[in-house]
Simulated scan of single mutants.
Amino acid sequence: MSRYRGPRLRVTRRLGDLPGLSRKSARRAYPPGQHGQNRKKRSEYAIRLEEKQKLRFNYGLTEKQLLRYVRKARRVTGSTGQVLLQLLEMRLDNTVFRMGMAPTIPAARQLVNHGHVTVNGRPVNIASYQCRPGEEIAVRNRENSRKLVEANLQYPGLANLPNHLEFDKNKMQGKVNGVIEREWVALQINELLVVEYYSRQA
Rank of each mutant, 00 (worst) to 15 (best):
R3Y: 06
R5W: 07
R5L: 12
R5N: 07
G6A: 03
R14H: 06
D17K: 02
P19C: 01
G20D: 02
R27D: 07
P31R: 01
G36Q: 09
Q37C: 01
R39Q: 13
K41M: 02
A46H: 01
L49Y: 10
K52V: 02
Q53M: 05
Q53N: 13
Q65D: 15
L66W: 12
L67I: 15
R68V: 02
Y69E: 15
K72A: 05
A73S: 10
R74I: 03
R75C: 03
V76M: 11
T77G: 03
V83F: 08
M90N: 05
D93L: 15
T95A: 14
T95N: 04
F97L: 11
G100D: 15
M101H: 03
A102T: 01
T104Y: 07
T104S: 06
P106I: 05
A108Y: 07
Q110A: 08
L111M: 09
L111S: 11
H114M: 13
H114P: 10
G115M: 06
V117H: 05
V117E: 06
T118N: 07
T118Q: 01
R122V: 06
P123N: 02
N125C: 13
I126V: 08
Q130S: 13
Q130F: 06
R140E: 15
R146Q: 12
L148T: 13
N152I: 08
L153I: 02
Q154V: 11
Y155K: 12
P162T: 07
P162E: 09
P162A: 12
E166M: 09
M172C: 02
Q173Y: 00
G174H: 03
K175A: 07
N177Q: 15
G178Y: 11
E183F: 02
E191I: 12
L192V: 15
V195L: 14
E196D: 09
Y197S: 11
Q201A: 08
Q201T: 14
